[in-house]
Simulated assay, not measured.
Amino acid sequence: MRFFSRKPSVRVFFATDIHGSETCWRKFLNAAGHYQADVLVLGGDMTGKALVPVVRDGGRWRATLLENRYEFEGEDEVGEFEEAVRRRGYYPFRTTPEELAELEADEKRREELFHRKMLGRIERWMRMADERLDGSVRCFVCPGNDDQFEVDEIVRSARRVELAEGRVVEFGDGYQMISTGWSNRTPWDTYREDDEEALEERLRRMAGALGVPPERAVYNLHCPPYGSGLDEAPEITADMRPKDAGRSTVPVGSKAVRKVIEEGQPALSLHGHIHEARGSARIGRTLCINPGSSYEQGQLLGAVVDLDGGSKVKRFVLTSG
């Protein structure tokens, strides 16, 4: 697929925040061929958010998804429902009324089951990548603030996927990229978040390890820069509900991220974290992109960026599919 008239030095496809969606992961792996990309980059938040029990009650099955109750008569209907659940990024599991009651009464068992399902999906995704990708395409993955630390080890064990967290990686025509899934503080107290001062120290340490000029540097930072327009999220009340039915938005990005971009002026800075804030912005010479996320619809939002070694990135396209 040709977006521009001449071949760039490096074409990057970037997506983020797929939150366990099986459909989005498959589309991500296919993106290299579809967009003729040399490099695939998946930003943070790979894992899903919820278990969905599919209960066998007598000769029938039942389940509840997003407060809607479903009943099924046979294996085909159950399988279709489970596929729809996986497409939305959740984890279906089959059970009985008795087993479900035991799980509901035992928080530790529920957490262990969620943990197994979540890590099992990541393991399957890495096997899928090993089968579908070849050495002609570099694929970098960086878990995000919502992802447990065990995810890193599974990604690290893959043959065709490279764990990018905390590293300087090289690709293409002399480009280097730094990545982190850590964010500033959120109301949800997730796995990888820190105070702005500590986050700034982490980012400075990575940026200081780069060995290329700014026009050959890429920052892959899950959290978007504060006040960039790529960090506008619905304002929430003290009881964690959207204010004004979600119409009121506020900037929630990181001031540390903005500061290191202003100082380092990389050619490109890739972000996610705020699903609603799809778009691009310039901070000095740096092109900042947040492709957004529509994982629950099975839609992969992304960005194709052509890097040609110039002082500014001039050619990019936000994609959906």
Rank of each mutant, 00 (worst) to 15 (best):
A256Y: 11
H222C: 05
T249H: 14
R247K: 13
L199C: 07
G229W: 09
Q265R: 13
N220H: 13
L230E: 04
E197C: 06
T249V: 15
A238H: 06
T237R: 14
N184K: 01
V218R: 05
R205A: 15
T186D: 03
I261G: 04
K243G: 05
L221M: 03
K259N: 05
L199S: 03
G246S: 12
I261K: 00
R247P: 00
R241K: 15
D239M: 09
R202D: 00
G246T: 08
S254R: 00
V212H: 08
N184L: 02
A233S: 12
P224F: 09
M240T: 05
Q265K: 12
A198W: 07
E263F: 11
M240L: 15
P187I: 00
L199D: 02
D244A: 15
R204M: 13
H271V: 01
D231M: 08
M206P: 08
D244H: 13
E201D: 12
M206N: 06
K243V: 15
H271P: 01
A245F: 15
D239S: 15
K243M: 15
P213M: 07
T249Q: 12
S248T: 15
R185K: 14
P251I: 01
E232H: 08
P234Q: 10
I274C: 07
S254A: 09
Y226E: 11
E215K: 14
D244N: 14
E263Y: 09
P225Y: 06
V218G: 04
D189M: 14
I236S: 07
P224A: 10
P214N: 08
R258K: 13
P187W: 04
K243T: 14
H273W: 09
V252Q: 00
L270R: 01
L268T: 09
L268C: 08
P225W: 05
A238I: 05
P214R: 04
D189N: 14
T190I: 04
T237I: 10
S248F: 02
G264L: 08
S248W: 03
V252N: 03
G229N: 09
D194T: 11
P224Q: 10
R205P: 09
E263I: 04
Y219R: 02
S269R: 03
G208E: 12
H222D: 01
E197P: 07
E200I: 01
I261R: 02
G227V: 12
S254I: 02
S254C: 06
H271Q: 02
L268S: 04
E263K: 13
Q265L: 12
M206R: 07
P242W: 06
G208Q: 08
A209K: 15
D231Y: 09
P242N: 11
R204E: 12
A256L: 09
Q265H: 11
R202P: 01
H271L: 02
K259Y: 11
P266K: 08
E193K: 00
R185E: 11
R258G: 09
P242K: 09
Y219M: 10
R185A: 07
G211L: 06
N184W: 02
E193R: 00
A233D: 11
Y191E: 01
R205D: 14
E263N: 12
L203K: 06
C223D: 10
L268K: 07
L203C: 11
S248N: 06
E196P: 05
M240A: 14
R204K: 13
R185V: 02
M240F: 15
K243W: 10
L221T: 01
R205T: 11
C223N: 11
R185P: 05
T237G: 15
I274E: 04
A267T: 00
